[in-house]
Each structure stands twice: as C-alpha cells, then as structure tokens.
Amino acid sequence: GKELVLALYDYQEKSPREVTMKKGDILTLLNSTNKDWWKVEVNDRQGFVPAAYVKKLDP
C-alpha cells in the first residue's frame, strides 16, 4: 500500500520542485531515499518537503 506521512509543521514551498503543506496534513510518501528532502504528493501535486518536517505514519 501507499506510505503516508504527517506534516509536523507548516511548510511554504521555496522553489517549483517543492510543495506547500500545512501542519496536520496527511501526505502520500513517494520517495524517502534522500535523508534531507522527501518527495510527497499532496492535492495531486508532487514535490519535495524537508524530511524533518514530516513523520511516517504507522501502517
């Protein structure tokens, strides 16, 4: 199944490769191989958020 992450903080995108999220958002995790930036999908948009700003949810 899909892996989900919880947004721990608000994040405002600073480049087109990033996405904005609000604290409490549930996002689909697409790629977590980079320790600093994780690729997520939110509202049909894909992009990166700081890994420290999200937490993996237990399945």
Rank of each mutant, 00 (worst) to 15 (best):
P59T: 06
L6I: 15
E3I: 12
M21F: 13
D36W: 08
A51V: 07
D10V: 00
N34W: 03
A52V: 11
P50N: 01
D25L: 03
N31H: 14
V5P: 01
Y9C: 14
D44C: 15
N34C: 14
G24K: 01
K22P: 00
L4P: 05
K14G: 09
S32M: 09
Q46C: 12
T33H: 11
F48T: 03
K14N: 14
D10K: 02
T33C: 09
P50C: 00
Y11L: 01
G1V: 15
T28F: 08
E13H: 08
P59W: 04
P59R: 12
K22W: 06
Q46F: 05
K2C: 08
I26L: 14
I26G: 02
R17D: 13
K23D: 02
W37R: 05
V49R: 00
S15Q: 11
W37N: 03
G1F: 05
K2W: 05
D25Y: 03
V40W: 00
L27F: 06
K2Y: 07
S15A: 10
L8S: 05
S15F: 05
N31Y: 04
T20W: 03
R45F: 05
E13D: 05
L6G: 04
L29H: 02
L27A: 08
D58K: 04
K39T: 11
S32W: 07
D36V: 11
N34T: 12
V54G: 01
D36A: 12
Y9N: 14
K56S: 07
K14W: 03
L6E: 15
K39D: 06
V40G: 00
T28G: 10
G1S: 14
V42T: 14
A51K: 08
D10I: 00
K55D: 06
N31G: 11
R45M: 08
Y53N: 07
D58R: 12
E41D: 10
D25P: 00
E41R: 09
V40P: 01
A52F: 14
P59N: 03
S15W: 04
L8E: 12
N43W: 07
T33Y: 06
V5Q: 02
D36T: 13
G24F: 03
W37K: 07
E18W: 01
D44W: 05
L27I: 07
P16D: 08
I26S: 07
V49S: 02
R17F: 06
D44E: 14
K56G: 05
K56I: 08
L27Y: 14
D58V: 09
W37F: 08
L29W: 00
V42N: 11
K39H: 09
R17H: 09
T28S: 13
N31M: 10
T28N: 10
K14R: 11
K55V: 07
Q46N: 10
D44R: 14
F48C: 07
Y53P: 01
L57Q: 10
E18T: 06
D36Y: 11
A7T: 04
N34P: 07
R17M: 15
L30S: 05
L6W: 07
Y11S: 01
L4Q: 10
P16M: 07
L29E: 02
I26D: 02
N43C: 07
D10A: 11
W38Y: 07
T20L: 02
D58M: 06
Y11H: 05
L27M: 14
P59Q: 15
V5G: 09
G47C: 04
A7V: 07
D44S: 12
L4G: 04
G47S: 02
Q12K: 09
A51M: 04
N31K: 13
L8A: 09
L57S: 06
T28Q: 14
D36G: 14
A52C: 08
F48E: 07
L4C: 03
V42L: 14
P16A: 12
P16N: 10
Y11R: 03
L6Q: 14
Y11A: 01
K22H: 11
K2V: 04
Q12L: 11
P59I: 04
E18P: 05
W38F: 08
V5I: 07
Y11E: 01
D58E: 12
D44G: 13
V19T: 09
K35W: 03
D36Q: 12
A7G: 04
A51T: 09
L27T: 02
L57P: 05
S32T: 13
Q12S: 10
E3W: 03
L27G: 14
R45E: 10
V40A: 01
E41T: 09
D10R: 02
D36H: 07
V40N: 00
L8W: 02
G47E: 02
T20H: 03
E41A: 13
G47H: 02
D10T: 05
L30M: 13
A51R: 12
N34Y: 06
D58L: 09
E3P: 03
V54R: 00
G1N: 15
V42F: 13
A51G: 05
Q46V: 15
D10Y: 02
V40C: 06
E41L: 10
E13M: 14
E18A: 06
L4E: 13
K39I: 09
L29S: 03
K14Q: 08
D25K: 03
G47P: 00
W37P: 01
